[in-house]
């Protein structure tokens, strides 16, 4: 592999530009929120049940092992430090069909924290 040494860039962000950007971003967020508050309030929750096929197979192992995923995934996970990432299934809709896709997310992501804590609590019982 070709190795290149480039001096680390010093990223300088113009504070005024940053402030202006932040303002625009917040306005967009706020506007998005406001627009939704008027809409859909009364709409019922549709289909938030987790489809059964998600649980098929040895998916109960939350340590990322035991998935019947594509080959190599498992070792990759190990190489990455084993506990750095967790494998999750992302539930998406294609038209009206439910589908799951695999993804790796960092173990320290708040998203998986609570699941892991509960799990640990369960183990202790």
């Amino acid at each position: 592999d070709e190795e290149v040494h480039v001096r680390q860039r010093v990223i300088e962000v113009d504070p005024q530009e940053e402030a202006e950007f932040e303002k625009e971003l917040r306005a967009l967020m706020q506007e998005s929120l406001d627009s939704r508050k008027l809409e859909l309030r009364a709409r019922p929750t549709l289909n938030m049940m987790i489809p059964m096929n998600v649980f098929e197979g040895p998916t109960k192992d939350h340590h990322g092992r035991g998935f019947e995923g594509e080959s190599g995934d498992e070792t990759l996970d190990e190489e990455a430090g084993g506990s750095k990432e967790v494998r999750v299934k992302v539930l998406v809709k294609r038209g009206n069909k439910q589908q799951t896709k695999q993804m790796f997310i960092p173990r320290d992501c708040s998203l998986v924290q609570s699941t892991k804590q509960k799990e640990a609590a369960e183990l202790e019982e």
Partner: peptide, 9 residues
């Protein structure tokens, strides 16, 4: 994420 399973949405 789901409370007990590694499913996110």
């Amino acid at each position: 994420s789901a409370k007990t399973d590694s499913v996110v949405v």
